[in-house]
């Protein structure tokens, strides 16, 4: 790692001030950022640690019936505390990485990083959640802008994610055997007014909604509704672990399995 200073603000406001410094970067759970720093792929001069900000932690039901998860909430807490309200989300959180990673990694960090193979972006997009920052509220559909790219401005942090709670939801993951990240994973959420299907791990563009599947499932919510639907392999990630065609195929299989788990 290159050297850097670390500041530990106690409030969001202090964090935003600290992030105004040159080459400042937020540090959430660090489960992606620290390995990146070790590889010297980033060179911040200041890391603004978000882990001491009490107001960014916790899982609560909002007055509007949405599940509000503080941006600094670690996966293990979401896995436990969202279970009663939104088991589909809790189930996803309970299988991110491994137990030690889940005790440090946060939803805000994961969403802000938008790794094309991360789990949380699928839940956020698949739920039609709202990403709340220190400055504004951003709809999930507007938030994810491609691999490692989001609508966040420089110095803007994710303070909360608000999840509308679907009738039911399920996350189906096929892991890449080395990293244990998804090779392909699909989050299917059935709401009263329609179905959302979000896919992670597959596309060069990062997490995306499979609208064809959503339309079919919004008509009839069963596995058969998906028959014949497929995605083109040429826009999918192709690497050591699988071709674009294989990933495209897995998207269909994982979607069917997610739906199968819900009917």
């Amino acid at each position: 790692m290159y050297d850097f200073d670390v500041v530990k603000p106690a409030t969001v406001a202090e964090a935003i001030t600290a992030l105004g410094q040159d080459e400042a970067q937020p540090l959430s759970g660090g489960q992606t950022l620290i390995p990146t720093l070790k590889a010297r792929l980033a060179m911040p001069s200041v890391l603004v640690s978000l882990s001491g900000i009490e107001e960014m932690r916790g899982v609560r039901m909002g007055d509007d019936g949405q599940l509000c998860v503080g941006g600094g909430t670690v996966h293990a807490v979401v896995a436990k505390e969202a279970q009663a309200h939104y088991p589909g989300l809790a189930g996803l959180a309970a299988r991110i990485g491994d137990p030690a990673v889940r005790n440090r990694g946060t939803i805000g960090g994961s969403v802000a990083n938008n790794d094309p193979s991360a789990c949380y972006p699928a839940a956020v997009l698949g739920s039609g959640a709202t990403v709340v920052t220190n400055a504004r509220e951003i709809a999930a559909d507007d938030f994810f802008e491609g691999m490692f790219a989001t609508a966040l401005d420089e110095g803007e942090i994710v303070t909360e994610v608000r999840f509308p709670i679907p009738e039911k939801a399920h996350y189906e993951k096929f892991i890449q055997p080395a990293s244990r990240f998804p090779l392909v994973a699909v989050f299917v959420a059935k709401f009263a007014d329609g179905v959302r299907v979000a896919v992670t791990g597959a596309s060069e563009e990062g997490v995306f909604r499979w609208s064809e599947a959503e339309n079919a499932l919004s008509g009839t919510f069963n596995v058969e509704a998906l028959s014949g639907l497929s995605l083109p392999g040429d826009s999918m990630i192709s690497d050591l672990h699988g071709s674009g065609d294989f990933r495209a195929h897995l998207v269909a299989v994982m979607t069917k399995r997610a739906v199968g788990a819900l009917v």
């Binding site: 890449q176 055997p177 080395a178 990293s179 690497d239 050591l240 672990h241």
Partner: peptide
């Protein structure tokens, strides 16, 4: 089933960490 030390045709190591070499 899973372990594979792979190079590309330029001699770059593709499986250069536990992110890509499956243990």
């Amino acid at each position: 089933l899973m372990e594979n030390c792979a190079y590309d045709s330029d001699g770059q190591l593709l499986s250069a960490s536990y992110m890509d070499y499956a243990m």
